[in-house]
Amino acid sequence: MKVLVPVKRVVDYNVKVRVKSDNSGVDIANVKMSMNPFCEIAVEEAVRLKEKGVATEIIAVSAGVAQCQETLRNAMAIGADRAILIETDVELQPLAVAKLLKAVVDKEQPRLVILGKQAIDDDANQTGQMLAALLGWGQATFASKVEIAGDVATVTREMDGGLETISLKLPCIITTDLRLNEPRYATLPNIMKAKKKELANMKPAELGVDVAPRLTTLRVDEPPKRQGGVKVADVAALIEKLKNEAKVI
């Protein structure tokens, strides 16, 4: 069974981004970029499925600028077998990404697509669900446990009130939550091996997809800053403040 894993290149989760002074966006020049953490979890899950003999081939795919190659090499160092870069300088929004991924699914015919639940830059949490809808497939979002037996995926999902388990007919879409697994580090030999793996390049037009944005960002602002608070000396002082100053207890 082929497994497709879409991975996104994002600002590293340790970076606290700054809003540009002209309010046109956030400043991402010269900041560290990494694979979206939820995508790492997706790659790891695919690799584990391969180690269990469930998956036979793992294809990583990323849409965006040329530097997404690094993200794809990283996915191959974790264990993806080959990669596809859909290269464009256009700002991609989730619906466009879902359409590009659908075109890749149509070509590659995977039985399973594992995505991150959310990209930590746009915090959209849309692409997997959109891809599932475009394909007419079932979806299991926020997965914390995945089991595949024959033609059925049984997935435990992190919900607002606890956990839910559903079963899906393959082919299907899974999006990863934090507790699904702990991604392995890419070892140096695997990083070297990844350099030799196949990385195909295509353009949105070759896939017949119109990626024009539907949404325009008019401006980006700093969120309101919290007033700097005070340190209190002891528990008694804290209670006094909460009762008489903040009046919240």
């Binding site: 956030v26 960002t217 401006r219």
Partner: peptide, 11 residues
């Protein structure tokens, strides 16, 4: 966006 470190006005 970005974990609430920026607010985008989107049309």
């Amino acid at each position: 966006i970005y974990a609430g470190n920026a607010y985008a006005t989107v049309k």
